[in-house]
């Protein structure tokens, strides 16, 4: 028997209802995108957990490195003008 392939890995993202964000559910193995979609449906939506699915080849995902978090996600606290309370509104102005 030739070397046994377990087929490519795909990441599965699911939207629980129209309007909601797509959320990562897990991964599946499949040889192509149609099979990936079907496997994702069978694996992650047996109880109406989703109304829409995205599948993405796992090797197409680019992830940030947690070691760089401090620098990478530096919230730029010095840029206080990003926060609405930074601004002085004229006395008496309403609904702003």
């Amino acid at each position: 028997m030739a070397t046994d392939s377990q087929l490519a890995m795909w990441e599965v993202f699911m939207q629980s209802k129209p309007g909601a964000n797509y959320i990562h559910a897990g991964s599946v193995h499949a040889s192509d995108k149609e099979m990936a979609l079907q496997n994702a449906r069978d694996t992650y939506t047996r109880r109406g957990e989703g109304t829409s699915i995205w599948v993405v080849p796992s090797d197409a995902i680019v992830a940030s490195n947690p070691d760089d978090n401090e620098m990478f996600f530096d919230p730029a606290n010095d840029k206080v003008y990003r926060i609405p309370t930074f601004y002085v509104m004229p006395e008496g102005a309403k609904a702003i």
Partner: peptide, 18 residues
């Protein structure tokens, strides 16, 4: 697992052909 190997092989071959 062994009986199913041909299914995985066929799926791979189909992807390559496409």
């Amino acid at each position: 697992h062994n009986d199913g190997a041909w299914v995985r092989e066929a799926a791979e071959a189909y992807r390559q052909k496409k």
